[in-house]
Design a binder for these strands. Structure first.
Lengths: 134, 134
DNA sequence: GATAGACCTTCCCACGATGGGAAGGTCAAG
DNA sequence: CTTGACCTTCCCATCGTGGGAAGGTCTATC
């Protein structure tokens, strides 16, 4: 199966498959006589693994670790859980940060009358001495 | 005031001040005889504006627009509000995406017993045919 | 004065994840 | 045998940020 077909079947773009191979996340794919990369069921399985892990926000570095754990059939599930928990904590921290931003911005938007007049609490707050949360 | 002092006073790193100047977000700073950049109260004001806007997640492109609005004392507040609302919608969309990720991951973490045993629903879900939300 | 250390300058490179696109080889269908 | 859809490698761009080298300047202390 060519790289394009593998991309369609896995949800990872051909561009990214090559990239993951280049950075060592994936073992170099076997090549055909025409030097085209050739993918089989096992590769597809790994690609789908990667696509799913990306979709829930794991970084490539984290996926490398997950893949290593996945390949080791003997590793304790504790190790996997710990990695996932670390990522979850990280996700939650980032969500909290963004919520704070959104909160602040919502307050500013609400306070701006948004008409013809030029005075605007949004710009006043960004430019002024006043705290943004006020 | 040197760039380092301006950085400390504004919360924008010296590195980024030069960068913002290079990409045209800021007008080139005036220079002293020794070619050091020199910042005054007005510049500091703009730098603080930028720092605050970054802190609530505006992109540099958005900040360029905000700065233009800020400099134009006559513009209707409607324009500012519209820009802020667009950003807010964008922020909220990203937050929703990340919450979905976190939800999924929380489910997986909860389902993993996390002990010595190797079987792990997290990896099973990432690797298997089953849906991630299951 | 000289020397040290803290500053400044420009320039290039890196990250992380992704895509665009050029230049060239290959395959399958008409 | 041409056409179009593939594939290959290679380089460049994005976005925001930082690291660091090589070199110039300022200030305080001896």
């Amino acid at each position: 199966m060519n790289i394009g077909a593998a991309a369609r079947a896995s949800g990872v773009s051909a561009k990214m498959i090559r990239h993951y191979e280049a950075i060592g996340l994936l073992k170099p794919a076997s090549r055909r006589d025409n030097s085209y990369r050739d993918y089989g069921g096992h590769d597809l399985h790994e690609l789908r693994f990667i696509a799913r892990a990306r979709r829930i926000g794991f970084s490539v570095a984290e996926i490398a670790a997950l893949l290593a754990l996945w390949r080791d059939r003997e590793r304790p599930s504790r190790d996997v859980k710990a990695l996932a928990e670390r990522h979850l904590v990280d996700l939650e921290r980032r969500i909290a940060e963004m919520r704070e931003m959104a909160e602040t911005l919502r307050g500013l938007v609400r306070s701006c009358h948004g008409d013809e007049r030029p005075d605007c609490p949004i710009l006043a707050s960004l430019g002024g001495e006043a705290s943004l949360t006020a």
